[in-house]
Amino acid sequence: MVPMPFAMPLLPLAELEVGQHFYWNLGNLKIHGQVFLSSWVVIGALLAVVVIGTRRLQREPAGVQNLLEFLWDYIRSLAREQIGEKAYRDWLPFIGTLFLFIFVSNWGGALIPWKLIHLPSGELGAPTADINTTIALALLVSLAYFYAGLSRKGFRYFEYYVEPTPIMLPFKIVEDFTKPLSLSFRLFGNILADELVVAVLAFLVPLIVPLPAMFLGLFTSAIQALIFATLAAYYIGEAVHEEHH
């Protein structure tokens, strides 16, 4: 994004740096360094919790292992509900990774005091508040459901485009493009909107008043993670679903 020249004097706020990035140059590419840094923190935290929780497995789970088993159970029921009994096992790791990464990113963006770390430009925050992250995740989902459909049904997968009638063909093709578009914009918009609402309220009234908005933000970001995972599972389920004639 190009920084807007006239917004900065209106709102002279460190918290409102939309469109400012901490650029790294990788060959000819300019990449958003702050997104990488915060995603590495999120990935590291997830890996640490999983490694600690599975190091000494016990028959009667306690502590971290208990939490992980609860999460696994939750994600499994989500995937089984959307994908179906036959195929859900293959896609459980994918759905679970999406859910956990988005959930921890959203909450990490709100709960970790990123403002204490100063970058030369831009600022750290939720990785999912950057459109590039969400588009990457949404395109992964697109690839996943194409792969799921093609690997399970072969070229019969394309029958799905002309069912129930061939009139549906253009709509189904357009759907393939709108699915990643809506997935990515929904997540990006919600997370950025939460951050902006909190930043604007904190700018107007620094104390106490932003707290309800922060709790609402935590709630909506958890729901958004659930929705992303549910929709990813639903699209995969749609692709592997066998018509019974």
Binding site: P3, M4, A7, V18, F185, R186, G189, I223, T230
Partner: peptide, 25 residues
Amino acid sequence: LLSLAFMEALTIYGLVVALVLLFAN
């Protein structure tokens, strides 16, 4: 909750357009 979030996404699309107009015109 799930369906409310779907409806909210529609407003969010408008918000994305607004943000593009303001910050990345």
